[in-house]
Design a protein around this nucleic acid. Sequence first.
DNA 1: AAAGTCATGTAAAGCGTTACATGATTAT
DNA 2: ATAATCATGTAACGCTTTACATGACTTT
Lengths: 192, 192
Amino acid sequence: MRTLKYAILGLINRESMTGYDLMKVFNMELVNFWYAKHSQIYPELKKLTDEKLITYEILPEDEKLRKKIYSITEKGRQEFHNWILQQDLLEPTPKDIFRLKAYFIESLSNAKILNHFHYQLTQRQEKLEKLQNNMQILLDSKDISKIQSPEYGDYIVLKSAIKREKSYIEWLNECIEEVTTNTRIFVDERRP
Amino acid sequence: MRTLKYAILGLINRESMTGYDLMKVFNMELVNFWYAKHSQIYPELKKLTDEKLITYEILPEDEKLRKKIYSITEKGRQEFHNWILQQDLLEPTPKDIFRLKAYFIESLSNAKILNHFHYQLTQRQEKLEKLQNNMQILLDSKDISKIQSPEYGDYIVLKSAIKREKSYIEWLNECIEEVTTNTRIFVDERRP
DNA sequence: AAAGTCATGTAAAGCGTTACATGATTAT
DNA sequence: ATAATCATGTAACGCTTTACATGACTTT
């Protein structure tokens, strides 16, 4: 599939940048739907250069801090465009260890279950707050009214990440409520 | 992380089964949060047998159809239990090619954007219907009222998969509406 | 008879993470 | 001076997919 290839082409198409810049974008803005470590980015940049999809110039010249600024080529732009135009079938659903553990919930006591769900809930709520904070910053600093602008892309994917967390939190709360109720009934039943 | 290891241990802990059975569970019930191809399952079963976490007996004996029925060992049960008790930090968010393409939305015309979103929406709606159908079957055929039962695990993860699809669909609909509105305004603006 | 499912495996390649490795620049 | 950040790369390992491979049983 080579998705990393197209992710890099797309970012360099937006704006010429270094491998280090790419790394920051992957691990900040894009982290909610795509990411890569620098150890994957640098070899991919080399590969894309070999394939003549991108080129680079070293700046500042002669000096010691060798910084490679990558730009997209016409060939690269075309391949990126073909990729984004192509309509894909649904991907397999993402793997989720917490859900896997939830599937095996019968192996735990109600107290342990509640522990697990509360721990996950706290983490998810913290994440949601961060995302909502990012959204506030985006709305305050950028104009997202034009659909044909990079800012609109930033906006809609951030919106989807927020929805995703809210949905997860809703599920966790419902599970906690059900298990709590069951626990209470169970306790009541033991009373004569 | 060896999550496949624990997924297999968990399933064999529920009930002794063959590699083929595991494959079917992974690609049917568990497919919404964990899965594996048979080419990954068989080597893992071999590894788990070497580690003495599972054992197998061949049935029917002497006959040609060699069928290995795997059972969990006490050691396997312990390792599984340790795994499920352990509280994990949030995993990195799952990768999503459609969201990645959405991030690069500026590269497409409004008509193409709507095309993409509608195509995705149709697929997600079909998937949601399948999940809701599965839920109906589950509720009709099993008693999910006992938390300490495998059926309850089936139920809560199916519920989360349904929520996930609904949330995705909601997002797609909002995007479609925004882009449609924008398109209309754009068209209106071009009228004198 | 043919097609589909049951049943089990291996090999090669691709993707991704962790660890190893180096050195310059900037902020405290 | 020291720590943090900028900047670039490689090596080893682990996980996952695709393709190769075989054969029995069951349904049409």
